[in-house]
Amino acid sequence: MIKDKLLALRKRSGMSQQEVAVAIGVTRQTVSNWEQGQGAPSLDKAAELARLYGVTLDDLANDEVSVVSSGRATCRDLHVLERFVGKRVTVGFMDDDERGAIVGAELLGVTENWLRVSYAQKSARFGSPKVVEQEIVALIDTADVASIVAEGA
């Protein structure tokens, strides 16, 4: 949901609600309301938030895009990761002091702050023997990437 993304992205940026409010020209209470799910930003404010956080408007608005971030910002040399773009990889990460991994993901892109990956998530519906596969896009905070391994390596 957008409220969860807004909170995660703000924490990742290291900004307070007041700093975000000043940056995009709204009140702190408005930012708080968005983060609590009591309303959502208008299109122009959502675009400003996306620019502020270094994501696309689609990343912000699309419920099928998740954000993986512990909020620890760090500077990394990312040129090595760019070689994996377009390849199937396993990405190991630390999220709030818990290890996680996304296996068999396609690395769609690398920016200063985010790895953008796409992967298939399988789930069963309650009471149904069918397994449904859903394509998920995740933005993984580059500060949280612990490892990346190309499939077949």
Rank of each mutant, 00 (worst) to 15 (best):
V117A: 02
R116F: 00
C75R: 14
K5E: 00
K3V: 03
D4L: 08
F126Q: 04
N113R: 13
R72G: 02
V55R: 00
P41E: 06
T74N: 02
L7C: 01
A8C: 03
D4S: 14
Q18R: 12
S70A: 04
V85K: 03
R12M: 10
Q36A: 15
G104R: 12
S147H: 11
S147I: 07
V103R: 13
G37M: 10
G39S: 05
A46P: 15
R83F: 03
V149W: 01
K130Q: 12
G39N: 06
V132D: 03
P129H: 04
V91C: 10
V67E: 04
S147A: 15
R10E: 04
T30S: 04
E106S: 14
V26S: 05
W34I: 10
E19F: 06
V80E: 15
M15V: 07
E48G: 12
Q36E: 13
R12T: 01
G25H: 03
I148R: 02
K3R: 15
V80M: 09
E106M: 11
K5D: 00
D58T: 14
K87R: 14
E135D: 09
S118F: 00
V22I: 15
A138M: 03
Q134A: 09
V89L: 03
G25P: 08
A61H: 06
V55L: 03
H79R: 12
L108C: 13
D58G: 08
L139A: 08
P129L: 06
R51N: 13
S147G: 13
A21C: 09
E135V: 14
S32A: 07
A124N: 05
Y53H: 07
A120L: 15
I24F: 10
L78E: 08
S66R: 11
I24N: 10
S42E: 14
E106Y: 11
L81E: 10
E135G: 10
K45W: 06
